[in-house]
C-alpha cells in the first residue's frame, strides 16, 4: 500500500531509487546508535559494575560452599535482566521521541521508506545491545577469573586430596566453557527479540509508558508459556481447567514468545553442556521472531497516520 507498492509505471521512474537501501538504513542505524550513546545509556554499565563488585563482596562475606557458582549465577542473572531492560527501555523511546520531536517528519519526508526506518532503528538498538553485552561479558569474565582462583584455593584447603584434585580439575575445565559463551550469546539474542517486540508494540502504541508496560508484560507472560502450552497439549491434568482459562492460555501460547527457551543461563551456570544444535535452534527461533516482529511492526507502522 505504501512504499513497496510500486507498479510498473513507478518502476520506470525509480531507476535510481532502490526499494531497500542499505546505505539509508545504515545511516539511521548509526544515528540511532550515536544518539543512544550520547544519551549516556552506557552509564548503566557503571551500575552493572557496582553490582558485580557488590555481589563479590557479599559472596565473600558468606563463607559457604560454591562461591564461584553463586557469583556465576548472580552475574549471569544480572546480565540477562540488564540486557532485557536496556532493550525494552531504549527501544520504547525511539519512535515516540521521533514523533514528538517531529524528526520523524523530516526523516520520512526524505526518500526513506518506513521499512528502512524501522530496520535502521532496530539495527541501531542491536548495536547498542551488542556493545553492552560485550562490555558486561568482559567485566563478568574478570570477576569470574578472580573467583575461579579463590575457589581453587578453597578446595585445596578444605577437601580430601583425592576429591580436591578432581574438584579443582572440574572447576578449571568447567568455568570458561564454550557453553558459557553460548549462554551469553543466548542472552544477547533474547535481548534483540525483546527489542523487536518492543519496537513492534511501539508501532501502534501512542505512548512511551504504554509501550514499556505492555512489552514487559508480554515478556513476563513469555516465561509462563511452557505452563500454558502444557495445558494445550494436555498431559498434565487439564481436566480441571475451566474453558475460559483454557482459551486464555491458548491465546498466550499463540501470541506470546516462549521466553523460557531463551532462559538457558540458569542451567548453563550449573555446568550442563548444551549441544551446538540447541544453540542453533534457539538462534533460529530468535531470528524468526525478529523477522515477524519487524514485518508486523511495519504493517502497523505503514498504515499509521503521522
Amino acid at each position: 500500500m505504501t512504499t513497496e507498492s510500486s507498479g510498473p509505471a513507478v518502476a520506470a521512474h525509480a531507476s535510481a531509487h532502490k526499494l531497500f537501501s542499505l546505505r539509508r538504513t545504515w545511516a539511521i542505524a548509526a544515528n540511532t546508535f550515536r544518539d543512544l550513546v550520547r544519551q549516556k545509556v552506557f552509564y548503566f554499565m557503571l551500575v552493572f559494575g557496582l553490582f558485580l563488585i557488590g555481589t563479590s563482596l557479599l559472596t565473600a562475606s558468606i563463607s559457604f560452599q560454591g562461591q564461584l557458582q553463586t557469583v556465576m549465577d548472580v552475574c549471569l542473572g544480572a546480565m540477562s535482566v540488564f540486557t532485557m531492560l536496556l532493550a525494552v527501555l531504549a527501544t520504547a523511546m525511539l519512535l515516540p521521541k521521533d514523533m514528538e520531536d517531529r524528526t520523524l517528519y523530516t526523516i520520512l519526508a526524505k526518500p526513506v521508506s518506513r521499512f528502512e526506518y524501522l530496520v535502521g532503528k532496530l539495527a541501531g538498538v542491536t548495536m547498542i545491545l551488542l556493545v553492552a553485552t560485550l562490555l558486561m561479558t568482559a567485566a563478568f569474565l574478570v570477576v569470574l577469573y578472580f573467583w575461579q582462583g579463590r575457589e581453587i584455593e578453597n578446595l585445596q584447603l578444605t577437601e580430601m586430596p583425592e576429591r580436591a584434585a578432581a574438584a579443582i580439575a572440574k572447576v578449571k575445565s568447567g568455568t570458561f566453557t564454550s557453553t558459557l559463551f553460548g549462554g551469553i550469546g543466548v542472552i544477547f539474542f533474547r535481548s534483540i527479540v525483546c527489542a523487536g517486540l518492543t519496537l513492534m508494540i511501539s508501532c501502534f502504541s501512542t505512548s512511551w509508558l504504554f509501550t514499556v508496560i505492555i512489552s514487559l508484560m508480554v515478556i513476563f507472560a513469555g516465561y509462563l508459556v511452557p505452563m500454558a502450552r502444557s495445558v494445550w497439549q494436555g498431559p498434565l491434568g487439564t481436566a480441571e481447567v475451566p474453558t475460559h482459562t483454557a482459551i486464555l492460555l491458548r491465546l498466550i501460547t499463540v501470541f506470546v514468545p516462549d521466553m523460557q527457551l531463551f532462559n538457558v543461563v540458569d542451567d548453563i551456570a550449573v555446568g550442563i553442556n548444551v549441544d551446538a544444535d540447541v544453540f542453533v535452534r534457539i538462534a533460529g527461533l530468535g531470528a524468526g521472531y525478529l523477522l515477524v516482529y519487524l514485518f508486523v511492526g511495519w504493517l502497523f507502522f505503514a498504515w499509521r497516520e503521522l
Binding site: 505504501t2 512504499t3 521512474h13 519526508a109 526524505k110 526518500p111 526513506v112
Partner: peptide
Amino acid sequence: RDVESREAVGFL
C-alpha cells in the same frame, strides 16, 4: 505514496 517522489522535496 511512492517513496521516490520525495527525492525532489525538501520539507521544513
